[in-house]
């Protein structure tokens, strides 16, 4: 019997099921502006400046996946979803600023659950053949958030979405 690790921080807590790993982080406030041009410049070290754009207010992010999450990932999983296999799933929950509270986009209350028919390749941040995604905006514990899910195979959405809901059941969000 393998113990299920629990990770917690930044107001999130998750009990990870077997094969799932997770990361909770908040990017440091960027101290320098960057663009794709200087991002690709030889010798640039974005770790020092912080990824993002100058003046950005960073918020907590939770990433979960049943595959090896790479060290460098975008908030919406870029860098990770490209490595997914057909049976892999990626979940991102991103918090937004309190100015979003009460707005129509975040009117839905509570961490949503996904359904197979809700997944669409067009919902992906960037389309990758075979994959499908979905996105929800909601408010949980007075914290405006976004749930973004990517399935490795849209064809297997019924089985994979059930896994997603099983993991979502294990997420706890502390009051903001």
């Amino acid at each position: 019997m393998i113990a299920e690790p629990i990770i917690g921080g930044h107001g999130f807590s998750v009990t990870l099921p077997a094969t799932w790993e997770g990361r909770i982080y908040q990017r440091p406030t960027p101290s320098a502006a960057f663009s794709p041009r200087n991002r690709a410049a030889p010798g640039s070290n974005l770790a020092d400046a912080g990824a993002g754009w100058l003046g950005e207010q960073t918020r907590p992010v939770l990433h979960l996946g049943n595959f090896a999450l790479p060290a460098d990932r975008g908030d919406y999983g870029s860098g990770a979803v490209e490595t997914m296999g057909p049976q892999n799933t990626f979940i991102a929950i991103l918090e937004f600023g309190r100015e979003c509270l009460g707005t129509a986009l975040y009117a839905s209350v509570g961490l949503p659950r996904v359904s197979p028919e809700g997944f669409d390749p067009n919902a992906l941040q960037r389309r990758i053949p075979g994959q499908a995604g979905c996105q929800f905006f909601f408010t949980e514990q007075s914290r405006p958030m976004c749930l973004y899910v990517v399935l490795g195979s849209g064809i297997d959405a019924p089985a994979l979405s059930a896994q997603v809901n099983m993991v979502l059941d294990r997420i706890r969000v502390a009051a903001g």
């Binding site: 393998i2 690790p5 990770i7 917690g8 921080g9 930044h10 990870l16 077997a18 094969t19 799932w20 790993e21 997770g22 990361r23 909770i24 982080y25 908040q26 990017r27 440091p28 090896a68 999450l69």
Partner: peptide, 21 residues
């Protein structure tokens, strides 16, 4: 499995057991 922190204070859980790789 390895559970710890990243350099920026991020909380990390990495699976080494019962995985394909």
């Amino acid at each position: 499995d390895v559970v710890g922190q990243g350099l920026a204070g991020d909380i990390i859980s990495v699976r080494t057991v019962a995985v394909e790789h």
